[in-house]
Protein backbone atom coordinates (compact mmCIF):
# COMPACT_ATOMS: atom_id res chain seq x y z
CA UNK A 1 0.00 0.00 0.00
CA UNK A 2 1.43 3.37 -1.05
CA UNK A 3 1.61 6.51 1.10
CA UNK A 4 -0.99 8.13 -1.17
CA UNK A 5 -3.35 5.23 -0.49
CA UNK A 6 -2.75 5.57 3.22
CA UNK A 7 -3.54 9.28 2.97
CA UNK A 8 -6.82 8.41 1.28
CA UNK A 9 -7.65 6.16 4.21
CA UNK A 10 -6.77 8.89 6.70
CA UNK A 11 -8.97 11.37 4.86
CA UNK A 12 -11.72 8.74 5.03
CA UNK A 13 -11.08 8.46 8.76
CA UNK A 14 -11.42 12.23 9.07
CA UNK A 15 -14.76 12.01 7.28
CA UNK A 16 -15.95 9.18 9.54
CA UNK A 17 -15.01 11.14 12.65
CA UNK A 18 -16.57 14.36 11.37
CA UNK A 19 -19.81 12.61 10.37
CA UNK A 20 -20.02 10.81 13.71
CA UNK A 21 -19.34 13.96 15.70
CA UNK A 22 -21.91 15.94 13.71
CA UNK A 23 -24.42 13.12 14.14
CA UNK A 24 -23.74 13.06 17.87
CA UNK A 25 -23.83 16.83 18.27
CA UNK A 26 -27.35 16.80 16.88
CA UNK A 27 -28.53 13.35 17.91
CA UNK A 28 -27.68 13.34 21.63
CA UNK A 29 -29.37 16.65 22.54
CA UNK A 30 -32.24 15.88 20.18
CA UNK A 31 -32.64 12.54 21.94
CA UNK A 32 -32.78 14.34 25.28
CA UNK A 33 -35.40 16.76 23.97
CA UNK A 34 -37.51 13.84 22.71
CA UNK A 35 -37.10 12.01 26.02
CA UNK A 36 -38.24 15.12 27.93
CA UNK A 37 -41.32 15.38 25.73
CA UNK A 38 -42.20 11.80 26.62
CA UNK A 39 -41.28 12.26 30.31
CA UNK A 40 -43.50 15.32 30.61
CA UNK A 41 -46.26 13.42 28.74
CA UNK A 42 -47.02 16.38 26.51
CA UNK A 43 -50.18 15.35 24.69
CA UNK A 44 -49.94 14.61 20.94
CA UNK A 45 -46.18 15.35 20.89
CA UNK A 46 -45.69 12.33 23.15
CA UNK A 47 -47.48 10.08 20.64
CA UNK A 48 -45.57 11.56 17.71
CA UNK A 49 -42.23 10.92 19.39
CA UNK A 50 -43.23 7.34 20.25
CA UNK A 51 -44.16 6.71 16.61
CA UNK A 52 -40.95 8.27 15.32
CA UNK A 53 -38.86 6.15 17.68
CA UNK A 54 -40.63 2.94 16.63
CA UNK A 55 -40.28 3.76 12.93
CA UNK A 56 -36.58 4.55 13.04
CA UNK A 57 -35.81 1.58 15.24
CA UNK A 58 -37.41 -0.67 12.65
CA UNK A 59 -35.68 0.88 9.62
CA UNK A 60 -32.24 -0.31 8.48
CA UNK A 61 -29.77 2.58 8.31
CA UNK A 62 -29.01 1.87 4.64
CA UNK A 63 -32.69 2.19 3.75
CA UNK A 64 -32.89 5.37 5.82
CA UNK A 65 -29.92 6.97 3.98
CA UNK A 66 -31.42 6.18 0.61
CA UNK A 67 -34.75 7.60 1.74
CA UNK A 68 -33.19 10.88 2.88
CA UNK A 69 -31.04 11.22 -0.25
CA UNK A 70 -33.45 10.08 -2.97
CA UNK A 71 -36.97 10.47 -1.58
CA UNK A 72 -36.75 13.77 0.29
CA UNK A 73 -35.82 15.69 -2.93
CA UNK A 74 -39.16 14.60 -4.43
CA UNK A 75 -40.74 16.36 -1.46
CA UNK A 76 -38.73 19.47 -2.19
CA UNK A 77 -35.88 18.92 0.28
CA UNK A 78 -32.67 18.40 -1.67
CA UNK A 79 -29.51 17.68 0.28
CA UNK A 80 -25.90 17.17 -0.83
CA UNK A 81 -24.38 13.82 0.14
CA UNK A 82 -22.54 15.05 3.26
CA UNK A 83 -25.46 17.00 4.77
CA UNK A 84 -27.76 14.11 3.86
CA UNK A 85 -25.38 11.72 5.62
CA UNK A 86 -25.28 13.93 8.75
CA UNK A 87 -29.06 14.32 8.82
CA UNK A 88 -29.49 10.57 8.48
CA UNK A 89 -26.99 9.69 11.19
CA UNK A 90 -28.45 12.28 13.57
CA UNK A 91 -32.05 11.24 12.96
CA UNK A 92 -31.03 7.60 13.25
CA UNK A 93 -29.18 7.91 16.55
CA UNK A 94 -31.64 10.34 18.19
CA UNK A 95 -34.36 7.73 18.93
CA UNK A 96 -31.84 5.40 20.55
CA UNK A 97 -30.48 8.28 22.61
CA UNK A 98 -34.05 9.20 23.45
CA UNK A 99 -34.66 5.75 24.89
CA UNK A 100 -31.44 5.92 26.91
CA UNK A 101 -32.30 9.33 28.37
CA UNK A 102 -35.86 8.22 28.98
CA UNK A 103 -34.76 5.12 30.89
CA UNK A 104 -32.58 7.40 33.04
CA UNK A 105 -35.49 9.76 33.66
CA UNK A 106 -37.98 6.98 34.41
CA UNK A 107 -35.64 5.35 36.90
CA UNK A 108 -34.70 8.61 38.58
CA UNK A 109 -35.32 8.24 42.33
CA UNK A 110 -38.81 9.51 43.03
CA UNK A 111 -38.02 10.59 46.57
CA UNK A 112 -35.41 13.05 45.32
CA UNK A 113 -37.99 14.62 43.03
CA UNK A 114 -40.54 14.79 45.82
CA UNK A 115 -38.00 16.46 48.08
CA UNK A 116 -37.43 19.02 45.32
CA UNK A 117 -41.16 19.59 44.91
CA UNK A 118 -41.65 19.85 48.66
CA UNK A 119 -39.01 22.61 48.73
CA UNK A 120 -41.01 24.57 46.20
CA UNK A 121 -39.06 23.74 43.07
CA UNK A 122 -40.92 23.85 39.80
CA UNK A 123 -40.43 20.94 37.40
CA UNK A 124 -38.04 22.96 35.28
CA UNK A 125 -35.90 23.99 38.22
CA UNK A 126 -35.90 20.45 39.62
CA UNK A 127 -34.77 19.13 36.24
CA UNK A 128 -32.00 21.68 35.96
CA UNK A 129 -30.69 21.51 39.53
CA UNK A 130 -31.44 17.97 40.67
CA UNK A 131 -32.09 15.66 37.70
CA UNK A 132 -29.73 16.85 34.95
CA UNK A 133 -26.51 16.79 37.00
CA UNK A 134 -27.14 13.14 37.89
CA UNK A 135 -28.87 12.01 34.70
CA UNK A 136 -25.90 12.35 32.37
CA UNK A 137 -23.78 10.26 34.72
CA UNK A 138 -26.28 7.41 34.74
CA UNK A 139 -26.67 7.61 30.98
CA UNK A 140 -22.98 7.94 30.14
CA UNK A 141 -22.32 4.21 29.67
CA UNK A 142 -25.28 3.47 27.39
CA UNK A 143 -24.71 6.74 25.49
CA UNK A 144 -21.08 5.84 24.79
CA UNK A 145 -22.18 2.40 23.68
CA UNK A 146 -24.63 4.04 21.25
CA UNK A 147 -21.82 6.35 20.05
CA UNK A 148 -19.66 3.38 19.09
CA UNK A 149 -22.61 1.86 17.24
CA UNK A 150 -23.09 5.15 15.39
CA UNK A 151 -19.43 5.28 14.42
CA UNK A 152 -19.52 1.73 13.12
CA UNK A 153 -22.71 2.43 11.18
CA UNK A 154 -21.16 5.24 9.15
CA UNK A 155 -20.16 2.99 6.18
CA UNK A 156 -23.86 2.90 5.28
CA UNK A 157 -23.59 6.48 4.00
CA UNK A 158 -21.02 5.34 1.38
CA UNK A 159 -24.01 4.33 -0.72
CA UNK A 160 -24.78 7.98 -1.46
CA UNK A 161 -21.17 8.71 -2.40
CA UNK A 162 -19.62 9.85 0.86
CA UNK A 163 -16.06 8.53 1.10
CA UNK A 164 -15.42 7.39 4.66
CA UNK A 165 -12.99 4.74 5.90
CA UNK A 166 -14.62 1.62 4.45
CA UNK A 167 -15.38 3.24 1.10
CA UNK A 168 -11.80 4.50 0.89
CA UNK A 169 -10.45 1.02 1.69
CA UNK A 170 -12.53 -0.68 -0.94
CA UNK A 171 -11.49 1.91 -3.53
CA UNK A 172 -7.82 1.29 -2.75
CA UNK A 173 -8.38 -2.45 -2.88
CA UNK A 174 -10.09 -2.17 -6.26
CA UNK A 175 -7.27 -0.04 -7.68
CA UNK A 176 -4.40 -2.22 -6.41
CA UNK A 177 -6.10 -5.63 -6.70
CA UNK A 178 -4.79 -6.22 -3.17
CA UNK A 179 -7.66 -5.62 -0.68
CA UNK A 180 -5.97 -7.07 2.38
CA UNK A 181 -3.67 -4.14 3.36
CA UNK A 182 -6.29 -1.37 3.07
CA UNK A 183 -8.93 -3.38 4.93
CA UNK A 184 -6.45 -4.32 7.65
CA UNK A 185 -5.50 -0.67 7.97
CA UNK A 186 -9.20 0.27 8.08
CA UNK A 187 -9.79 -2.23 10.89
CA UNK A 188 -6.89 -0.78 12.87
CA UNK A 189 -8.26 2.74 12.42
CA UNK A 190 -11.76 1.73 13.60
CA UNK A 191 -10.27 -0.05 16.60
CA UNK A 192 -8.22 2.99 17.55
CA UNK A 193 -11.21 5.33 17.23
CA UNK A 194 -13.40 3.09 19.41
CA UNK A 195 -10.55 2.75 21.93
CA UNK A 196 -10.32 6.53 22.22
CA UNK A 197 -14.07 6.80 22.91
CA UNK A 198 -14.09 4.02 25.49
CA UNK A 199 -10.99 5.41 27.17
CA UNK A 200 -12.60 8.84 27.38
CA UNK A 201 -15.60 7.23 29.09
CA UNK A 202 -13.31 5.55 31.64
CA UNK A 203 -11.54 8.80 32.42
CA UNK A 204 -14.82 10.65 32.93
CA UNK A 205 -16.20 7.87 35.14
CA UNK A 206 -13.02 7.87 37.20
CA UNK A 207 -13.31 11.65 37.65
CA UNK A 208 -16.93 11.30 38.78
CA UNK A 209 -16.01 8.53 41.19
CA UNK A 210 -13.19 10.61 42.65
CA UNK A 211 -15.35 13.71 43.03
CA UNK A 212 -18.50 12.07 44.37
CA UNK A 213 -17.34 8.70 45.61
CA UNK A 214 -19.67 6.78 43.36
CA UNK A 215 -20.04 6.27 39.60
CA UNK A 216 -23.79 6.62 39.41
CA UNK A 217 -26.62 7.20 41.90
Amino acid sequence: MTWAAFETLLTGAGTTVALSLAGLAIGVPLGLALALIRWARIPVADQLVATYVSLVRATPLLTFVLFVFFVLPTMGLELDPVPAAIVTLALNTAPFNCEIWRAGLTNFPRDQLEAAEACGMTRTLAFRRIVAPQLWRVCLGPLVSEMTILLKATPAVAVIGVVEITRAASRIGAATYDPLPPFLAATVIYTLLIAVIVQAQRVIEALIARRYGYAAP
Binding site: P109, E114, A115, A118, C119, G120, T122, Q134, Y214
Partner: peptide
Amino acid sequence: TAKELALARTRVSMVFQHFALWPH
Protein backbone atom coordinates in the same frame (compact mmCIF):
# COMPACT_ATOMS: atom_id res chain seq x y z
CA THR B 1 -50.83 26.98 38.73
CA ALA B 2 -47.50 25.16 39.00
CA LYS B 3 -45.79 28.41 40.02
CA GLU B 4 -48.38 29.28 42.65
CA LEU B 5 -48.18 25.78 44.07
CA ALA B 6 -44.37 25.90 44.21
CA LEU B 7 -44.56 29.21 46.07
CA ALA B 8 -47.15 27.86 48.51
CA ARG B 9 -44.98 24.83 49.21
CA THR B 10 -42.12 27.02 50.39
CA ARG B 11 -44.21 27.71 53.51
CA VAL B 12 -44.17 24.05 54.54
CA SER B 13 -41.11 21.82 54.76
CA MET B 14 -41.01 18.06 54.83
CA VAL B 15 -38.69 15.43 56.26
CA PHE B 16 -38.98 12.04 54.58
CA GLN B 17 -38.64 8.51 55.89
CA HIS B 18 -35.76 7.74 53.53
CA PHE B 19 -34.08 11.17 53.90
CA ALA B 20 -34.29 11.99 50.17
CA LEU B 21 -31.05 13.95 50.20
CA TRP B 22 -29.63 14.90 46.82
CA PRO B 23 -26.53 12.73 46.39
CA HIS B 24 -24.74 15.01 43.91
